[in-house]
Simulated scan of single mutants.
Amino acid sequence: MAIPDITSATGATADIYARVKKISGGRVPNTYAALGYLVPASLAAVLDAQGTLNSGSLSRQEHETIKLLVSEKTGCDVCVAAHSFVGKLVGLPVDSLRAIRAGQPTGDARRDALVRFVSHLHSTSGTTSEDEFNAIRAAGYTDIQLAEISLTIALGIFTNTFNRINGTDVDFPPVK
């Protein structure tokens, strides 16, 4: 879908674009531009949920680890590029970003437990076993953080699916 020039947006779309610009340094990524154009309330919900997560107990690196892994597994090239870029900005080493995408160890035990847990959730169905919960809890994750992990996964899957349906153009540096 072609996204109209964001400077010509009016009403709810213009309002949500202004909100995105305020939190992203003046830029409106293509995913947000398309979603804001089509359903401004959905983009507002995404931003509200992300704001809730940002004030939670998971670090930005943990959020980007989850989003990058889910994006890779879902096959969203836009989000893989975005979360690789943002992952670097929040301090994830390039080697770790590659390992996360491949589902391989990063050398950080807590991050690796998170990758294993999210991979398990993404690739299985049904109730998660007590062994899986014990492993993620042994890595230091609390029940509150498990809820935050769930919301981070859900937001990732939403934007991944939207981009795949929309055919959103990648507007972040390519991933090597």
Rank of each mutant, 00 (worst) to 15 (best):
L35W: 03
L35A: 10
G36D: 05
G36K: 02
Y37I: 03
L38C: 14
L38A: 11
V39N: 11
V39I: 15
V39M: 11
P40W: 02
A41T: 10
S42N: 13
L43Y: 03
A44Y: 04
A44F: 06
A44P: 01
A45Y: 04
L47A: 08
L47I: 14
D48E: 14
D48F: 12
A49M: 12
A49I: 10
Q50G: 12
G51E: 07
G51C: 06
T52R: 12
T52P: 02
T52S: 13
L53Y: 00
N54L: 10
S55D: 15
S55R: 13
S55C: 08
G56R: 07
G56E: 07
S57C: 14
S57Q: 09
S57T: 12
L58V: 02
L58G: 00
L58H: 03
L58I: 12
S59A: 08
S59P: 09
Q61T: 08
E62M: 09
H63A: 02
H63C: 01
T65R: 01
I66Q: 03
L68R: 01
L68F: 07
L68Y: 02
L69D: 00
L69W: 02
S71N: 08
S71T: 11
E72L: 08
E72K: 14
K73F: 07
G75A: 09
C76K: 00
C76D: 00
D77P: 05
D77A: 15
D77E: 12
V78C: 15
V78W: 10
V80D: 01
A81N: 13
A81F: 08
A82T: 01
A82Y: 00
H83Y: 08
H83D: 04
H83I: 05
H83E: 04
S84N: 13
F85Y: 12
F85L: 10
V86Y: 07
G87T: 02
K88S: 15
K88W: 10
